[in-house]
Design a protein around this nucleic acid. Sequence first.
DNA 1: GGATGTGAAGTCGTTCACAGCT
DNA 2: AGCTGTGAACGACTTCACATCC
Lengths: 200, 200
Amino acid sequence: MYARCLEELEDRGEAVVSSAQLASDCGVNAAQVRKDLAYFGEFGIRGVGYYIKDLSDDIKGILGLNREWRMAIIGVGNLGTSLLLYKDFLKKNYKIVAAFDVDLSGVVGKVSEKIGKPVEILHPDRLKEVAKQRKIDIAIIATPASEAQNVTDKIVAANIKGILNFTPAQIKVPRGYTVKNVYFTTILDNVAYLLQSKRK
Amino acid sequence: MYARCLEELEDRGEAVVSSAQLASDCGVNAAQVRKDLAYFGEFGIRGVGYYIKDLSDDIKGILGLNREWRMAIIGVGNLGTSLLLYKDFLKKNYKIVAAFDVDLSGVVGKVSEKIGKPVEILHPDRLKEVAKQRKIDIAIIATPASEAQNVTDKIVAANIKGILNFTPAQIKVPRGYTVKNVYFTTILDNVAYLLQSKRK
DNA sequence: GGATGTGAAGTCGTTCACAGCT
DNA sequence: AGCTGTGAACGACTTCACATCC
């Protein structure tokens, strides 16, 4: 959040920012900003503020955003295709280096056509082999929910430590693996509840 | 989360569940489950547990999941199209009742072809008019980030109180509006940081 | 002077442990 | 006997307030 705000300030040509301003931009408390940043070191200058460029670089270093993260998409349906075409990845250090689907034939044409160049769709059984070759860091599960655990097991076997799960299934992984779940209807449930409870 | 677990238990033919089992299914503490549920009322029976069907219905009532929520997609690019085609909405009480885009011509054909029937794409300026007609509860922003605030202002003018924002822009709304942000690269940043900090 | 870094206070959420029902 | 509901202990995060330093 701070990294994103800082980039915006940088683009605007600003050089220094105070915790108060950064807080207001991010919609949080100023003390919060200082605590968060101070946790990782002393980045600010008393009486002045934070040098935007330096702080931005420091944060990116801390978050690991200054290196490339190589990703695989598993499941090339609507969502998977959408992610393959997702332009924001290009600006950031995220790169999709492989796409997997059980249906090899069906999707290739459509996706390739949209993306402008042929996309190679591989069978999920080849995950382990390809993960090593292409140094995959993160796997994105965009299959039907019923396949989620099955696919997860293949990801674990391939020793890919980061997983982004777009299915509603609660997947099980050994410790040491990082899983983030993103499920649209759960987010909508949240909005719906807040709307309903405010209305009354 | 509980609602989803309960549905699964229901499908499996179970009738009663204890806080301990529900907790284990959801990956949380048993006391947590009891506190969460007790907050809204006394749903359990001491010495027995919770009747799954009743609890499931109660939770859905509390969350507002037993009524239809009518949504509009604004921005019919890759992501917007993907959401229009998203099948999980059909099983839940979420319904996309309108789609908006500044480019009326470009997308109609492609989406319609995929969806099997013609999809009507409207200009965002018609949001207010259509919101009233079609009783839109929630607006989904799937435009480029640069358009987010612009579109948000139209949503506010149309008096749509729930907003799901898929752009990285931090949008501003008057109080009384509910906004949820879903931004893929932020989630990936999180995964990347956790991976990096574990590795060292 | 002015903004950071940080102990202390305050707030919120989680977990424990057990009284109270069924 | 067993499991819920809940006060109390605990822990984590947020905010305050000010000493500290540029």
